[in-house]
Every structure is written in C-alpha cells, then in structure tokens.
C-alpha cells in the first residue's frame, strides 16, 4: 500500500526529492503564529465545535442527522479527510470532501438546494470531519478512476494563467522559500484545509485559497467545487502524500 503511494507520487513528479525537503505552511510560519495554532484557545476550535453540534442535528426533508447514518464521527470519519478527494459512483466524477458533504446533504438529508459551497454550517461540518484526521498522514485515494482528474490537476499546476502569465509551479516549485513582498512563498502543500486565515478572520476551504492565488495572478478563478479545482486538489494531495493533516490550522 505505502509502496503504491510512493510509486504514484514518483510517477507524477519525477525527480522531486519529496521525502526530505518538503515544508508545510506550518513550517513556514513564525513562532508566534505556530504558538497560536498550538494554543487550545485558538479561534479555529469554534468551527470544530459547531460542526460537532451539527453532526447530530436532524436536517432536510428526511430529518436525518449525519450521526443517524454515520454514527460517531470519531470512528466513521477517522482518516477520511486524509484520503480525499474521492470518486463518486453515482455521478462518475471526482469529489472533494466539501462536495461529498454537500452530496450527503442533498441526496441523503434532502436539504434545500442549491446551497452555497461556503455555507457556514457546511464549512463547520467540513471542519469537524477533517478534525477526525488530525495528525494522520495524507494518503491519496488510489482509485484508478481518479487518475485522469489527477493528471489534469498536474497539467493545471504547471499551466501559465492570468495577466501575469504565471503557473502555480513557477511560484510553488521554482520559487518556494523565496519571498513575495514580505510573505514567504510556500511549497503549497494542502496539509490544512479548511483553515483559519488571519487574513479572512474566519475559516475557509481550499477553494477559497486557490481562488485567492488565481486572483493574485490576475486570472478568473475556477468556480468553487469545479472539476478544475478538484483536479488541482487531487494533484496537490499526491504531491503532499505522507505529510500530516493539520486540523485546524492557523495561517497568516
């Protein structure tokens, strides 16, 4: 199993010595911000608590709660976030964890649709489900049906975009560790989403972060939950395989 993952990553990124020199966003933060993340009195905790409450609240026309079907999240959701995105049988597409939760809300709870992807309750559920994978290594789903989307993500990662005509790879592979204004350019490992960003003063998903980067290069961001963003996440997760899931992190 582990060998298969290593193989996948090596296959996707030939020549990247990933086991030694990968740095997470946590590694790149200063000591004050690391201390805030490590402090139990950290604002991200509120969303985990909100999610915990929502987990057992009946919702939608079926009036079923997440707990009615999934039982204790500590058992059923352990490791799930570490493995997502995953393949959805009925639609035949890759879905990210936020998309999966949205599907459970529409298919199984039959809540009113459409609901905004960044709906605060849904983000809180995402926070709570992700929290059940804290400290676990990222283990990308090996379902072969995900391979095309993952390959598309890899291609997108090195596609130039926007008026600045920059690709993700130009910053996060070629210039990682350098500085953009005063901000250190990270290697862009998605070890901690959703996250509490001081810039946002709230939690947000990887969607929102990637949209920020795309706006930064003056490109029209891909829509939240779009196949492009799920593809990018698939690639980023393979690139980050083995790194530890942070739940929930603080970022500047």
């Amino acid at each position: 199993m582990r060998r298969a993952i290593v193989f996948t990553v090596a296959f996707l990124l030939p020549g990247l010595a990933w086991s030694d020199d990968r740095r997470t966003g946590y590694d790149d933060m200063n000591a004050d911000l690391q201390a805030l993340q490590d402090d139990p009195m950290n604002p991200a905790t509120f969303w985990v608590l909100d999610g915990e409450r929502l987990w057992s609240e009946p919702a939608g026309t079926t009036a079923q709660s997440c707990a009615d079907c999934h039982g204790s999240a500590e058992d059923s959701m352990q490791g799930v976030a570490a493995r997502y995105p995953s393949f959805d049988e009925s639609s035949g597409t890759a879905v990210d964890l936020l998309g999966r939760i949205a599907l459970c809300q529409s298919r199984h709870q039959q809540t009113a649709q459409p609901r905004d992807r960044s709906d605060p309750d849904r983000l809180a559920l995402l926070a709570y489900v992700t929290h059940q994978s804290r400290g676990l290594p990222i283990m990308p789903d090996e379902d072969p049906r995900l391979a095309p989307a993952r390959a598309r993500g890899e291609a997108l990662f090195s596609s130039r975009m926007g008026q600045l005509n920059l690709s993700c790879a130009q910053c996060h592979d070629d210039n990682a560790g350098g500085y953009l204004a005063a901000a250190r350019i990270p290697q862009a490992h998605p070890t901690g989403y959703p996250q509490y960003r001081l810039e946002w003063e709230t939690i947000g998903s990887l969607d929102r972060r990637l949209a920020g980067c795309m706006t930064g290069v003056r490109a029209d961001p891909f829509a939240p939950g779009s196949p492009e963003l799920v593809a990018l996440e698939l690639f980023l997760k393979s690139r980050a395989a083995g790194l530890t899931v942070e739940a929930l992190p603080i970022r500047p």
Partner: peptide, 8 residues
C-alpha cells in the same frame, strides 16, 4: 508581525 489582523 506577519499579519496585522492578529497580534498577541
């Protein structure tokens, strides 16, 4: 300070 939104 890296982000002025939260300074201990």
């Amino acid at each position: 300070v890296e982000n002025g939104n939260s300074v201990p």
